[in-house]
Nucleic acid binder design. Structure first.
Lengths: 338, 338
DNA sequence: TTGTAGGCGTTATCAT
DNA sequence: ATGATAACGCCTACAA
């Protein structure tokens, strides 16, 4: 059996392709009931479905939305992807999920690929890099795309001006730190994300700001970095607690880091939150089921994904949407009585 | 700026579109160096990139692979998606990730949508449903697709004959149960997946078989079901341990169930593995970082995703590939001394 | 109410 | 070594 096209349907139904096109696209063009039925029957018989590539070619844009994530197996991106794909298909779009594996080169490559598919828009789920060449490259991609009508929206800070749907990462870092301080903690460690990713940078800044406001001296030894993964959090935390002894709490830049960190803390024989409290940012699904359940600042990943799709499909020169966040109290933070 | 096409390039370079096409496709057609340079320059200047929709239209197939998952925010599917997307882009393909939200209707709908995009192949990540209407519908989709050259490969049992890359779910259920029995457990609970999903059915069968071989009587009260999620596992386990009192171990049909179950067990005041041991199937990333670290049967998700892409791209009427599995011993199972 | 014809951006088949 | 031109499958003025 060959690829059946609109022509085959027209032949079988004994009408012109125009008529077929009108019937299947259900335009409110008055069409004789009899004709319509003939066409429907032929469509059914031939199992005809329109070729979207051809439609797109004609209409010079596709019903595809690109989503660029760093690691699709990470719940953070997974939940975003869920929001994006669901909303997209609700609206008759389909989403390309592009997994960069945290490789900036691939990220830019995907921009090209997506553009070649003439996608309707691109959603950037990962934060940008604070590196001149990366920023320049991204910038030039954006310019090119926006000139041609391709919408782009970011779910994390990119270090350049671009439509966005995100939380305030600085505030996020500040809030969780303040939460700890309010509960009597002063010896607070911080495990951040990659050094050059804006999301990390902002959250760390927030951490420092909270310390500063509370009059707690910032100690560089209390800081360590990871790559936003559980493994990274585990390793960074192991190092951290082997180096400094008086920590009563650790602030993690995301939930995965916290999950890894908790594992490391236990391994060193400490108890959570009795010896060391843990707080983080994200509230991915797993956070409820860790031991102890994780106190964390909720980021509405799923909704962000949905909104990003809306922004693209109902484009109106949006500047940006900042979502509010709040802390979900569970059991990983202890109140210190001094 | 408009969508620049091959025509614009040809004009700017002062050559025919044929020549441009030849240059960019790098066919080993002898082309004068000078001409080639002119074209390259024009391409560069115009930032031209071919329109894939048009290419696909011409060549009557696309470089897209569809992946149908039940829940992309679940690490199980996330890791598969990672394997699929990475391998796909290595090979110059792009993957559509379709999230069904565990809704069978959507699943079939995506088949249509994918087909309309004339994708190269479809990868079914979730298991099929043991329901007549579902099976029939799926069957008819398969027939249609295969007749038209669309490749389909499954990563889980579908209850019908279809090319696959998967593990033996029966053996998986049997292995983990035997592991428990060998360590002295006889009062073993089981938390399975959805009743009608073949993957669940097979794993439960394996569980029963192991019990049978060991001469342990099968007790219906020891069985409970979930939906493969952490939340489901939590609830099913809560119910299970409130109903039966003498359990020393619980066998979970996947890691998410186990994570939820561990949370429920702790909540009821039991300790793992001292009071109750837990084992499961999957070995998703999180399994290493649970408390205690989870003993589980490893399924090579990432590799399965990769292989599925290979199967599609190098189609050779493969019947099926069954991957081997082995248990990763961590700390959630206790040896019972009777 | 229905049909004709041109064009969307490519590639491939002929010519030249 | 290069160029015209005809598809690919669809949509949409414009006619009839």
């Amino acid at each position: 059996m060959k690829n059946v096209s609109i022509v085959d349907v027209a032949k079988l139904a004994g009408v012109s392709i125009t008529t077929v096109s009108r019937v299947i696209n259900n335009v409110n063009y008055s069409i004789a009931l009899k004709t319509r039925e003939k066409v429907m029957k032929a469509v059914d018989q031939l199992q005809y479905t329109p070729n979207i590539a051809a439609q797109g070619l004609k209409k010079s844009f596709s019903n595809i939305i690109g989503l660029i994530v760093r690691d699709i197996s990470d719940s953070y991106f997974g939940e975003i992807a869920e929001g994006v794909t669901n909303r997209a298909s609700q609206l008759g779009y389909l989403a390309f999920v592009c997994n960069t594996g945290r490789n900036p080169e691939d990220e830019l490559m995907y921009h090209d690929l997506l553009w070649q598919h003439r996608v309707k828009g691109i959603i950037l789920a990962g934060g940008g890099l604070d590196q001149v060449d990366y920023k320049q490259k991204l910038m030039s991609q954006l310019v090119r795309h926006e000139q041609c009508g391709l919408k782009i929206v970011s779910l994390a800070p990119q270090g350049i001006e671009i439509p966005y749907v995100m939380i305030n990462d600085f505030e996020a870092g500040k809030k969780v730190t303040e939460y700890l301080i309010e509960r009597g903690h002063t010896k607070i460690g911080f495990i951040g994300g990659p050094q050059k990713v804006f999301t990390s940078i902002e959250r760390l800044k927030g951490f420092k700001a909270a310390l500063d406001i509370a009059g707690i001296e910032y100690n560089k030894d209390y800081i360590n970095r990871s790559d936003f993964s559980q493994k990274g959090g585990y390793e960074a935390c192991k190092l951290l607690i082997s180096q400094v002894e008086d920590l009563t709490a650790i602030c993690c830049a995301n939930d995965n880091i916290a999950i890894g960190a908790m594992s490391a803390i236990r391994e060193q024989g400490f108890s959570i939150p009795k010896d060391i409290s843990v707080i983080s940012i994200g509230d991915i699904k797993e956070a409820k089921y860790t031991n102890p359940p994780l106190t964390t600042l909720k980021i509405p990943h799923y909704e962000m994904g949905q909104m990003a799709v809306d922004v693209i499909t109902q484009w109106k020169e949006t500047v940006g949407i900042t979502l509010s966040t709040s802390i979900f109290e569970r059991e990983s933070v202890r109140v210190l009585n001094k």
